[in-house]
Design a protein around this nucleic acid. Structure first.
Lengths: 248, 248
DNA sequence: CCTTTAAATATTGTATACAAATGCCATTGG
DNA sequence: CCAATGGCATTTGTATACAATATTTAAAGG
């Protein structure tokens, strides 16, 4: 991961996720190159990656902009993720090995420890959560599924500091993971799928509730000729900080 | 689409799909650049695109190879497509407009005409089929879904000359489309989803039957150090011609 | 005053040169 | 004879220069 291209990708991605580059911002290659301290070549590659992940949109004349997210887009992303990750859970349940099961238990044990402290260790929680879901995806054994979910799990709106989660929400997440482990242990694909879908969609509603009234419907993509000017930019200075992860 | 990069993409893609570049072949940038008559820069871009579509795999040391397809990979791709396109059908049914419905009827009318002739016009059939499915996807109104299905619909194994389809199979495909139109007209999402899944999975079994015994299980990706040498290359000269589209 | 046109500016696309890394092969030492 | 190491060939990564294209600005005409 020491390649310049990856650094550029990570840098741009973080700037978008952090709100430093608000939705609708034009992404000039030269400007980004300077900001990242690299040449345009790796920046171009990074932009293409971000484009396939829909974090960046391009006009028909090849100009890149930070993608806009309407409330419907968010719902859309969660629905898709619920379906795909539910499918992953179903497949994983069928192919579950004792080894994978151990990894899942271990990951959720880390989560239990992270939320047990007087003040929850959010970083550890997020990390354990990531490991848990990654293990399931790995066990599902589908390259395609992995590729498709990869571009879906960490989206801008999906990000949200788990700090906003109260102790009860954190515990409920852990509890759902435990239930998933039970389903996996019994190789019950249908059960696992149902739990997972519920798990994800609950996360969506947690997000939606937290953002009630905040997000005026921002339209999807900047159109060809009039991209950044007239866009109602939602992410003002205050909103920039609010970018985090919905910990499913 | 007059950009050099797109030409390179299309050229490489076609070479893979046509079997000219058999699975496991190393894809050197310079060699491809010469073959396409362009410089390495657009070739690199094309390779990255093909990589995200899983037509090309890269080793951990950044070498590119034509992806291998095991029978399980094929099944995997069809399962995913069935799920995603089923989902698209469900959404489309809910949002169906008279305008979109007209487009669907028109596309299927073209199919009817294409298969009605004494000798079926396969090109017209494929074209109509593409239009039909594209209209549904469009009506589903999900950018993400469109992006994800885009990399799934035209995969190497999914390709197969519809020439292999007999008149009955062509007619059945048309008939299922008609049923889809009926479900759409009634805004019955569940029905539409079920038909679509059946439609896709039937196509899978048509493919599987046609390739029985032919495809010895080819493993997934060439491993890091020993990529092309020991691979049991399936696509011999004879197999190269067999590359086409499973017309769902 | 608005629309249209044309030049100027800015941005992206492609090619090429060079640097870094990987892979291969032969040689050497055990 | 096998394993390890060194250098040579090949391949990919990055930077930069130049060409093509798009956008903006300003001026002219209606």
């Amino acid at each position: 991961m020491s390649r310049t291209s990856d650094r550029a990708y990570a840098a741009i991605r973080n700037m978008i996720l952090a709100g430093e580059l608000p939705a609708g911002t034009q992404l000039g290659e030269e400007a980004l190159a300077e900001k990242c301290g690299v040449s345009r070549t790796p920046v171009r590659e990074a932009l293409r990656r971000l484009e396939t992940e829909l974090l960046v949109v391009r006009t028909d004349t090849q100009r890149s902009f930070v993608a806009e997210w309407s409330i419907d887009d968010v719902r859309d992303a969660f629905d898709l993720r619920a379906m795909l990750e539910g499918y992953a859970a179903r497949r994983a349940a069928q192919r579950m090995t004792t080894d994978s099961l151990a990894r899942l238990r271990s990951a959720n044990a880390q989560i239990a420890q992270a939320i047990a402290l007087p003040r929850p260790d959010v970083a550890a929680f997020i990390d354990g959560n990531r490991m848990f879901h990654a293990a399931i995806l790995d066990c599902a054994g589908s390259r395609r599924l992995m590729a498709q979910l990869g571009s879906l799990v960490e989206q801008p709106v999906v990000w949200r500091t788990a700090h906003q989660y109260g102790p009860d929400a954190l515990h409920r997440s852990w509890s759902e993971h435990e239930e998933l482990v039970a389903a996996f242990a019994r190789h019950d694909g249908g059960w696992a799928e149902a739990i997972m879908q519920s798990h994800i969609l609950r996360a969506y509603h947690a997000y939606a509730d937290a953002h009630k009234g905040l997000t005026g419907g921002v339209s999807a993509a900047p159109s060809a000729k009039t991209p950044p000017a007239e866009l109602p930019v939602v992410h003002s200075a205050g909103a920039a900080r609010r970018v985090i992860e919905v910990a499913a």
